[in-house]
């Protein structure tokens, strides 16, 4: 709801601007900086860890990111087990012995170009969806209302004994429904359940929804929240842009994330009379 209010305010602000405004593609000189290491690492239940290492590129550069092939990568868990992850090509490193186990904590250490980075993440249990529902989004008062669509509501079972958060990637009819990640925080609804409500897209009866839910810890949730800021585009009233904070340290982009995934597919049913 807050997002939609924000958007509406922005629309109104922009409406007045665009009475006179115009846009033009321009050339702009952006700094050519030293590339930074980019890490994308995952640990999922029953699977070996994976990590892809690349370098960042200049902003307008169209070339593929340069791969990092000579990194030293160590994965360990809270019980002291560790192993060196092997390079598989295409910037990808994987573990062999260590496989993801729920309730374990994992630490990933990387050494690249003489610099060391280290990140920690907890593997939490798979989400339990209690219900999937849809709520009408109307524009206008009750008599002359216009149906914008339906918001998707997903309720999760809360785990009072642990801090668990959820990130959702949703495809609608085969395409990602939004550019950003859906997130559910520990703020429970009236029934004591965690609730996700789609804010950036609507669904309609007959839509096929492929819902992937990742159980993540708070730090990963915060990372996705910050990623969403960057993914949601430039609004005039947006805060100053920033780098999403990696859990691997300073001067590195990306994240090492332990996560449990659950998938479900639903077809939006016919929903009452409009």
């Amino acid at each position: 709801m807050k997002n939609s209010v924000y958007k509406s305010i922005s629309i109104i602000s922009l409406f007045s601007f665009f009475l006179y405004s115009c846009t033009e593609v321009i050339d702009i000189d952006l700094n050519s900086t030293n590339p930074v290491v980019v890490a994308e690492g995952y640990m999922e239940p029953g699977s070996p860890a994976s990590l892809r290492l690349t370098y960042s590129t200049d902003y307008f550069n169209m070339e593929e990111a340069r791969l990092i092939e000579n990194a030293r990568v160590i994965l360990s868990d809270q019980r002291g087990k560790s192993e060196s992850m092997m390079y598989q090509g295409d910037g990808l490193y994987t573990s062999e012995q260590l496989r993801g186990k729920v309730h374990n904590d994992y630490t990933l250490s990387i050494e690249v170009d003489g610099k060391a980075y280290s990140g920690f993440s907890s593997l939490l249990p798979q989400a339990e969806i209690i219900s999937i529902s849809y709520s009408k989004l109307l524009l206008g008062d009750s008599e002359a209302s216009q149906l914008l669509g339906y918001a998707l509501n997903v309720a999760f079972q809360e785990h009072p004994e642990m801090d668990v958060y959820y990130a959702l990637k949703i495809k609608k009819n085969g395409l990602y429904a939004a550019n950003t990640y859906g997130l559910a925080s520990t703020r429970a609804n009236d029934e004591g359940n965690l609730m996700y409500e789609s804010k950036s897209f609507f669904v309609s009866p007959g839509d096929t929804l492929e819902i992937a839910v990742y159980s993540i810890d708070f730090e990963a949730y915060a990372y996705y929240s910050e990623l969403n800021e960057g993914l949601s585009g430039n609004m005039i009233m947006s805060p100053a842009p920033f780098n999403a904070r990696s859990n691997l340290g300073e001067d590195i982009m990306g994240y090492f994330m332990a996560r449990s995934r659950m998938d479900t597919i639903v077809v939006v049913p016919t929903l009452g009379t409009e």
Partner: peptide
Amino acid sequence: TFPSGKFGYDGHYLAYYTGRNEY
């Protein structure tokens, strides 16, 4: 604040910033 670089993550291209208000 403008981006000074970009990188790929989880299928997205993201901007990389080197400092607040440096442009």
